[in-house]
Design a protein around this nucleic acid. Sequence first.
DNA 1: ATGCCCAATTGCATTGGA
Length: 267
Amino acid sequence: MSAPESTTPFSIATWNVNSLKVRLPHLLEWLAEANPTVVCLQETKLEDHAFPTAEIEAAGYQVAFAGQKTYNGVAIVSRLPLADVVVGNPRFDDPQKRLISATVAAPDGDVRVVGAYFPNGQAVGSDKYAYKLQWLTALHDWLADELASHPRLALCGDYNIAPEDADVHDPVAWAGQILCSDPERQAFRDLIALGLVDAYRLFPQAERSFSWWDYRNLGFQKNLGLRIDHVLLSAPLAARCTAARIERHLRKKERPSDHAPVIATLG
DNA sequence: ATGCCCAATTGCATTGGA
């Protein structure tokens, strides 16, 4: 037990970086500072040939990624070996790069990590909203099978869903709006019903805790945010979870992402 | 009532994000 990873507990995180090209320095700083074991990234916005593999490997992490130009793009970076990488949902033919899964060889057993960039949906009733709901249904149905074959599973990502009013800075203004509509929240509950647990809510948290703040209108400075980035753990992993937090300070850096990382520690 | 910011594109405005 002298490996470096044994000195810090296993932890798993998610972060929508809103362009990995711009945010690579932030990521490298945060990896060194917080030493997460696994990080799921969203909105890398890089084609695979442009992924900064060498820089991230130099920081002591392995990488798996699936990207495209301009939009979307997901990745998993891990201090521990990654295996069995799967891109996308085999039940949902989707040209948009929004899903990547891999098995991480954790000290006490394998963990299946699913990194997800859920569709935004743009506006309730729009074509993009219909796509979001279809995507959510397909994710749910696929995950039911994945959980059966991988009981130790974490679903980490930018869900683009604020599950409860407590996750919204102004629940009245957002009522029924995109990210907060009943069908979206029901889809979130349907994921929970598969046996997943919202790691952040396992612990007491400050009121008005958010993971995203609009770039406009001094959204961060006024804490006008939403909690839409989540780490969901299957029961065997939730039983081992000892802490969860939002890395709010990353939103204060120069040229920040509009999202902050969420990290859960498994003791 | 609406935009406000940020990133990317083959750009000199538009789209998407949330």
